[in-house]
Design a protein around this nucleic acid. Structure first.
Lengths: 152, 152
DNA sequence: TCCTTTTCATGAGGTACCTCACTATCTTGG
DNA sequence: CCAAGATAGTGAGGTACCTCATGAAAAGGA
């Protein structure tokens, strides 16, 4: 490995790729753990609540589209959140196939708490990066993950 | 957004953190999909095979330690890989609580194929980055993910 | 209008992880 | 030697996703 010109035989795309997956997995676990211990709500469920906060009252198929998940998965998520009293689910008079989902007041409060918990962890982890490093990382991520606008 | 000094109000640690999680999730899905369609083996299972390739014959608790997973999860993984004929599992005479696990020849071949498939995808994704960008990304990842040497 | 197609939610069952409880076995301090 | 105590694997059951099949309702086309 000569190191005088062109440099860097040190990290193959494969190695860096796997490192990214591992690091992200560890971070996700940490965020999830903290959110659950602080509020009882996981990152996954928080994302559902966020979608509802952002899009208002929607039916499940729409929610599946927003979340990029299978309709079946949304049914399950919505069931669990309903059991917790964080969302309301009612039939739809105009289209009786649909079920209309919306945040409850409790849900809105829980969402705020969960977001705070998650953001706290992310600030702890990413706060060590300088502003320039943050934007560098963001740029690299967009290069890797072409922001595929959702199919619809 | 003034851009003359100190720059960057554009990306908070939270935003970049979430972007990282999302991107990694998408990449993982893509790698997994390709590995499964090419070889029938998922990334998860491939990691088990890799651990066995790297550490030779071990018992399950050791494998759990290597993989950083719960012993229960390793039991399941090992069961499925045994059903596929990719690993052997035998009792241990010295310690009859233990079950000794090792790669079969088929397993070794399957591992090579799966690794090839996975690496192909990662090269496609990360190949667009310049060498300098790759090392930058790697550096940023190590800043974020303190390389916690496994507890043992 | 009736008939096919599409859409919406969900049952059934699968993957990959987890925890907790339990048995079998090994190790060690009296 | 033998009763704790630690360790190895697994049953039971949970979370968060998935696919595929199904029933109910809406939308369109002839």
């Amino acid at each position: 490995m000569s190191e005088h010109h062109t440099i860097t035989t040190g990290s193959s795309p494969e190695q860096v790729g796997l490192a990214l997956l591992t690091t992200a997995h560890n971070i996700r676990e940490e965020v999830d753990r903290h959110m659950i211990s602080a509020t009882g709500i996981s990152l996954s469920r928080t994302k559902v609540l966020q979608a509802l906060a952002a899009h208002g009252t929607v039916h499940q198929a729409r929610l599946a589209d927003i979340l990029g998940q299978a309709p079946r998965s949304v049914t399950q998520a919505v069931e669990s959140l309903e059991r917790l009293g964080l969302i309301d689910r009612t039939g739809n008079a105009e289209d009786r196939r649909r079920k209309t989902v919306s945040l409850t007041t409790t849900g809105r409060t829980a969402l705020a708490a969960a977001e705070r918990a998650g953001e706290h962890v992310l600030r702890q982890i990413f706060g060590s990066l300088a502003p320039q490093q943050l934007t560098d990382l963001e740029t690299l991520l967009t290069l890797i993950n072409p922001p595929r606008s959702h199919t619809g």
